[in-house]
Simulated scan of single mutants.
Amino acid sequence: MRAEPPAWAPGPAQAAALLEEAADLLVLHRDFAAAVERCEAGCDSLGAGPGPGHESFAEVKCSLCVVGIQALAEMNRWREVLSWVLQYYHVPEHLPPKVLELCILLYSKVREPQVMLEAGSSWLRAQANQRLPELGSLLELYLAEVLLPLGLFEGAEELVRGCAGLDSEQQLALLGTVRESRRRWAQREETRSPAEEQQEPATETLLGVLSQKLLTMLTLLRRALRSMSNHFYLLPYKKMLLATFLLYLVVVRLDPASPTSLPFIYKLVQLFRQAWAAVLSPVHRPPIRD
């Protein structure tokens, strides 16, 4: 009776078994961390490179990386994806077309296409990749999702002309796409500038209205506190003012994580400090007992 191989025996066969486990964990069990662990174990079991007769080596390794990318994305660890795959392929030029495609799409979706600038350019310029049938589609994807959204039109034209694997018809079509994108970009810039100039006063007006509301609210609160100060010496002024301020922030639904909200928050803080100084000035401050 033949003995079964060890559960973690290296090679494509064990890597294929780990690939199946990782796919099940990803799709059926939604255990993304465990799926990544299986993918890493599978890639490690393949060693440094395929040996003679291991024709399925590259396919299994690519599939493990595809599952790993999806699992990392599900865990919102997309920032790790490029470095994660490069630890198994070492340089961008060696990435399989499918892995490169997934990386481009992922970083484009999260609006970080610049992450793929160097990796994508290195892959598309590599001489060994000029013979691959996926070259044209990957170049088109790289242009559409990375270079053109970033406004890098000169670099896009240079890259298209430098790809020896493209025929003249493909080059002309891609260069036409770059020129059309440049034209639309210029039109957008021309029409956006006046709109932005009109938006800034409108934004200032809105901020002024909201700031005035806050100041009015605190002024009314100050009057109410002054009228009660003779009867309620133990009233926690600072706590009430702070609660009012926080309530106002909730009412206007500010998102402190949003960069666009920062100037508004700074204005509110300044107004709050001014109102605080007015309310708690020595003239109107009632005696507070511990």
Rank of each mutant, 00 (worst) to 15 (best):
Q198S: 04
T244H: 07
P96S: 15
Q270K: 08
S181D: 07
A277M: 07
M116C: 10
E158M: 05
P92V: 09
E169V: 10
T260S: 15
A278Q: 09
H284L: 04
R222Q: 14
E189H: 05
M240Y: 09
E180F: 01
L102K: 10
W185K: 06
E180M: 05
L247E: 15
M116G: 08
G42A: 11
A33K: 11
E101C: 09
L64K: 05
V279R: 05
E204L: 09
V66I: 09
T177E: 14
Q171S: 11
K238H: 10
S45V: 04
E169R: 07
R289C: 07
L215R: 15
C65T: 10
A41W: 06
A277L: 03
L172I: 02
E93Q: 12
L174Q: 15
S181V: 02
L175C: 13
W84Y: 13
E21F: 02
V110F: 05
A156H: 00
L150I: 02
D24K: 11
K109G: 10
R77F: 02
V99L: 08
F32C: 08
R222C: 06
D44R: 12
Y107R: 04
G49M: 07
E154K: 04
R125P: 02
E140C: 06
E80K: 01
P50L: 13
L166A: 08
E20I: 01
L207M: 10
C43Q: 13
E180P: 00
Y88M: 06
E154R: 03
R131W: 02
E157R: 12
S258W: 03
V250T: 11
L247R: 12
L166M: 10
V99H: 05
S229R: 08
R226C: 08
M217S: 14
T216W: 04
H94K: 14
E157P: 00
A278V: 03
M1H: 09
W78E: 14
M240V: 09
D167G: 15
A119Q: 02
G42L: 07
A15L: 07
R182N: 03
E118N: 04
L18C: 06
E101Q: 11
V60N: 06
M228R: 09
M116E: 04
A186R: 10
Q212F: 05
I104N: 06
V60T: 14
Y88F: 14
W123C: 09
K238P: 01
G136I: 00
P149T: 10
I265C: 11
R179L: 08
H284P: 01
E180N: 06
R77E: 12
H29R: 15
A33G: 12
E197S: 10
G136T: 06
L28K: 11
T205F: 12
A186T: 04
L95C: 13
E158N: 01
A195V: 03
A275N: 07
T216D: 15
L147V: 01
S168H: 05
S227Q: 14
P6Y: 06
A23S: 11
G155Q: 12
I69V: 10
S193A: 13
H29F: 05
V209W: 01
H54K: 12
A126V: 01
A3T: 07
Q198W: 01
V146T: 07
A34R: 13
L247I: 01
R222V: 02
A202F: 04
R223I: 00
S211P: 00
A7W: 04
L246Y: 07
